[in-house]
């Protein structure tokens, strides 16, 4: 079945801008705030957010890192195909900082739990928030909610949400689509 579009290119741009202004409202010039993108796919969103924030507040110094959750996941040895580790790069200490975790899709909440564990290796933050582009609501398996949501959608387990990035796909377009496997039709 053809994937259903959820967010097209223009909406995508507007959502990113709105999320950034929401962040600026709460974090001023980011002097005490750090951004952590979650590997593997959250880092594209985190980079986009960071670049857009730079346009909005050019004078800001934004601390940016990427976090891999592989060694902190609760599904080690429980998956058919194991997850390979990705790079973690947090070149600063987050002690007493405000942390914004960024992932593209919030689904069961298990990745975010693992990310919070991974994050604590770099200090005790004063405050942690979560930003996500797509919130697959009603699918949570843990009591985790996002502080900033691009778009909340209703989906079922057999469906898949993918975020496509202009710099990574052939169509050169940013968009989000919902895939439904054939046997659910």
């Amino acid at each position: 079945m053809k994937p259903t579009p959820l967010i097209d290119q223009e909406q995508f741009r507007l959502i990113i801008n709105r999320l950034c202004f929401e962040l600026v409202e709460n974090h001023d010039d980011f002097s005490n705030t750090v951004i952590l993108g979650i590997q593997p796919r959250g880092i594209y969103l985190a980079e986009r957010i960071k670049d857009t924030l730079k346009e909005i507040i050019p004078q800001a110094q934004i601390d940016y890192g990427v976090l891999d959750t592989t060694f902190f996941r609760d599904d080690f040895r429980r998956r058919e195909q194991p997850i390979a580790a990705n790079a973690t790069s947090v070149p600063f200490i987050i002690e007493n900082k405000k942390v914004i975790l960024i992932d593209d899709v919030l689904y069961t909440g298990r990745t975010i739990r693992a990310a919070m564990d991974a994050m604590l290796a770099y200090g005790r933050p004063s405050f942690v928030e979560l930003l996500t582009l797509v919130d697959r609501r009603f699918s949570r398996e843990l009591p985790i909610e996002a502080s900033y949501v691009g778009k909340a959608i209703d989906s079922i387990d057999s469906q898949r949400v993918t975020v496509e990035w202009a710099h990574l796909n052939k169509a050169k377009k940013d968009r989000v689509v919902l895939h439904t496997s054939a046997h659910n039709e």
Binding site: T70, F71, F76, N86, A87, A121, Y122
Partner: peptide, 26 residues
Amino acid sequence: QLIFKHADEFKDVINRPIKKVPTLRE
């Protein structure tokens, strides 16, 4: 190569203030 790729990430782990990950607790 797969071992090397993971060794890169573990080398990062053992150079952190907290040099430990909980993966193999079982």
